[in-house]
Amino acid sequence: MADPSSHVHGYPGRLFVFEGLDGSGKSTQARLLGKWLSSQGYRVFHTEWNSSELVSNIIRRGKKKGLLTPTTFSLLHATDFADRFERQILPPLRAGYLVVCDRYSYTAFVRDSARGCDSAWVRNIYDFAPSPDRTYYFRVPVAVTLRRKLASRLKISYYEAGMDLGLSDDITESYLKFQGRLKREYDRMVATDAFTVIDAERPVERIQMDLRLDLRPLLEDFPTGETLQHEG
């Protein structure tokens, strides 16, 4: 796995994916890692998959009219991901960048499965997205993500709590149930999708150190920005 030439997708760049529940700390880690990689002279492209304006507008409208179903919800997010992939992820990957992805297709797999979509159907849709060189899964108990959320005075959103599934009328209880489903789906994929599991309950600095240690061998022969832009 440490051999830098044996990556799976065949593009000159490398793809590092950060996955995990909301509040698992993955975004903080992705940003810190991107900073470090840039400081080492590599060309880095950082991208987050949060709902784009297009999708959030449609979702807001659909929610008001009660039009959204698991299938349209899933397809809408797939459209959004495809747009990001074709516009933001693929070009830097082909240009030889280190692409740091905060959420990738796995986010859709867990969310859509938790909503009852056929998982083979969902996987087929995302077939255009290549397997990453590394997928870090930030594993953390659901109760911890809730605690972190409450501590930072963030409100639980309707879809984050899976309120559309009718698991409970109480938003906190629904959140715990729905996020629990997501976690089970993530846990299941550890083996099938070669996740590198990160114990996300540890201090931020310790986790970051581990990530850097883990990535270093993958980058041994990887060209820095300087060598990409100037010959000789």
């Binding site: 179903t69 397809l75 797939a78 459209t79 495809a82 747009d83 074709e86």
Partner: peptide, 20 residues
């Protein structure tokens, strides 16, 4: 829009029509 994006946007539109 790219090919996959447009195809999925159409699929969303179709799914919505089918279900609603």
């Amino acid at each position: 829009l790219g090919g996959a994006t447009l195809a999925l946007l159409y699929a969303t539109d179709f799914a919505d029509q089918l279900e609603n």
